[in-house]
Simulated scan of single mutants.
Amino acid sequence: MTKSEFPLGEVYGHLETGPVLLLSTRHKGKANVMTMSWHTMMEFEPPLVGCVVSGNDFSFQALKATKQCVLNIPSVELATQVVGCGNTSGLDTDKFAEFKLTPLAADLVDAPLIAECFVNLECRIVDTRLVNRYNFFVLEVVKAWRNPAGPEPHTLHHRGNGVFMVAGETIKLPSKMK
């Protein structure tokens, strides 16, 4: 088999496995939503999620100040809104209004759930030791919501440079994990 070298900037598109998320925050009375795909599961119970939020993003300051957010998982039907939120700054745009997303009150955090997303995870930041160096936050999921109607929707997965993959068929294989 012949191999060919490829640019290091394309590595991300081969390693990313999790769905694109819409991260929502509320700070100083203003709700915001940003598109995020740099995240990873770190622990099962309690569920811990690591995520990178650029220091240039409007949401970064809200996360640092409030130490809470909601991770919302959109289906492929929200692709236009996902890309729109990722290409727009919350500094000067109400993304909920602009992209016709419905904020819902969460139970345990001040950040809003997004009604159109099929899963919503209320989170609190539990570790900030890597924020100053890598913009890496460790979140604990404190409450989880899902839309029980129908089968699990297809999710978007960012491959880089505006390219997305849509999750396909789900298969179940024998596992000793519970």
Rank of each mutant, 00 (worst) to 15 (best):
T2K: 15
S4L: 14
E5D: 14
E5P: 00
F6T: 11
F6E: 02
L8P: 08
L8M: 11
G9Y: 13
G13H: 07
L15F: 15
E16V: 14
E16R: 15
G18M: 05
P19H: 10
V20L: 06
V20T: 15
L21E: 14
S24I: 09
T25C: 10
H27Y: 15
K30Q: 15
V33I: 13
M36A: 15
M36P: 10
E45L: 11
L48I: 14
L48H: 13
G50I: 01
G55D: 11
N56S: 04
F60R: 09
Q61N: 12
K64W: 10
T66H: 02
K67S: 02
C69L: 10
V70L: 08
V70R: 04
L71W: 10
L71R: 07
I73Y: 03
P74F: 01
V76I: 05
V76C: 04
E77L: 00
L78W: 09
V83G: 06
V83I: 02
C85W: 01
T88K: 08
T88P: 02
S89G: 05
G90M: 06
L91G: 15
D94F: 03
F96H: 05
F96V: 10
T102H: 02
P103N: 06
V109K: 06
A115Q: 08
A115P: 04
E116L: 00
C117F: 03
V119K: 04
V119Q: 04
N120T: 08
L121F: 00
V126R: 05
R129Q: 10
R133T: 14
Y134R: 11
V138L: 11
K143Y: 01
G150E: 01
E152C: 07
P153L: 05
T155S: 07
G162Q: 13
F164R: 10
M165G: 13
A167W: 04
A167G: 10
G168T: 05
G168Y: 03
S175R: 11
M177G: 02
K178M: 05
